[in-house]
Simulated assay, not measured.
Amino acid sequence: METALEGNELLVNQKWEKGTFVMKCGGSTLEELPDSFYSDLAKLQVEGVQPVIVHGGGPAISDNLNKLGIETHFVNGLRYTSEEVLDVVEMVLAGSINKKVVRRIAQSGGKALGMSGVDGGLIIAKPVQAAAEVGLVGDVTDVNAELIEGVLKLGYMPVIAPIGVGTEGSRYNINADTAAGAVASVLGVHQMIVVTDVPGILKNTGGEKRVLETVTVQQIEDMILTGEIYGGMIPKVRAAIACIQGKVDEVIIVDGSEPGILGRVLSGEKIGTRIVRMG
């Protein structure tokens, strides 16, 4: 009987550097990813590539808050997080979503270990400057790289839910993009992959929308000002920009539904949009 790994021929003949890469995936995108995406992850793992996954879960959090009758609102893109809201955030991110990702990887033949930033002091955080307006939302101050590396050495890909812990033991809701950028920076990863439901950043050229191959952070800001980037694409590109920190010099936005997308990116194929720090 053919296994998912044996049937996945898209990656078999590709060459890529053996090493670690960080992938950030939003909660809504995770729900839509095809089984082949998880098969690709498993194939990469078998080939000696070490994925580290940081995921979000905004829509599922909102759904559960609504079911429980807990009101919430957003301030400048950040969910106001009370203790009551944080209980639900942790339940959804570190619970149902995290374990679903781990299960899907296992079903595809891969090995994954789910954890949140609270486990082993993985993500240390402090209150954001606007804590008075947004509540228990945190900024990352440190990431336990040894813990992530230990999980990788055991042969498992870490699947990380962005809940942070303070030095005094308190919990914080961490933006998934911020958490992913911090993890990538501490691990010394040069490149990070942001998996979304769009093929990249689109620019209207001669009445036709085309994917920009490479764009700088400043060019993105300029395109937002001119209206070339608008609507739902604005939070996506701002999220990607947030990942460029420390040693992370470029972020690649790709469509997770593209066949063999991860292997294609890692093998150097020009696909999606590369956001670079400088021109």
Rank of each mutant, 00 (worst) to 15 (best):
L152A: 01
V151Y: 04
P259V: 01
K270H: 11
D35P: 13
G232T: 06
G95S: 10
S170E: 12
R104M: 00
T226R: 15
V134M: 07
E258W: 07
L10H: 03
V165E: 01
L11P: 11
V276K: 13
N144P: 02
I224R: 13
V49N: 07
V128W: 03
M157T: 11
T72Y: 14
D197Y: 10
T167R: 15
G181K: 10
K18Y: 04
A4G: 06
V128S: 03
G7R: 13
E71G: 11
L187M: 03
A130W: 06
I123G: 00
I241F: 05
I244K: 12
R274K: 15
T205G: 05
Q50F: 09
H55A: 00
Q191M: 15
S257M: 10
V211D: 00
M91S: 01
M278Y: 12
D35L: 10
K67E: 11
T167V: 09
E228H: 15
Q50L: 08
L65K: 12
P162Q: 10
D222L: 11
S36N: 08
G227I: 02
H73T: 07
T141Y: 10
G246E: 03
N204F: 08
K209E: 02
V12Q: 15
N98E: 01
E269K: 15
M115Q: 02
G27T: 02
E6S: 09
R171F: 09
G19S: 05
L122W: 02
I244A: 09
I53Y: 04
L78T: 05
M1P: 13
N13P: 05
L152M: 09
L225Q: 14
P235G: 06
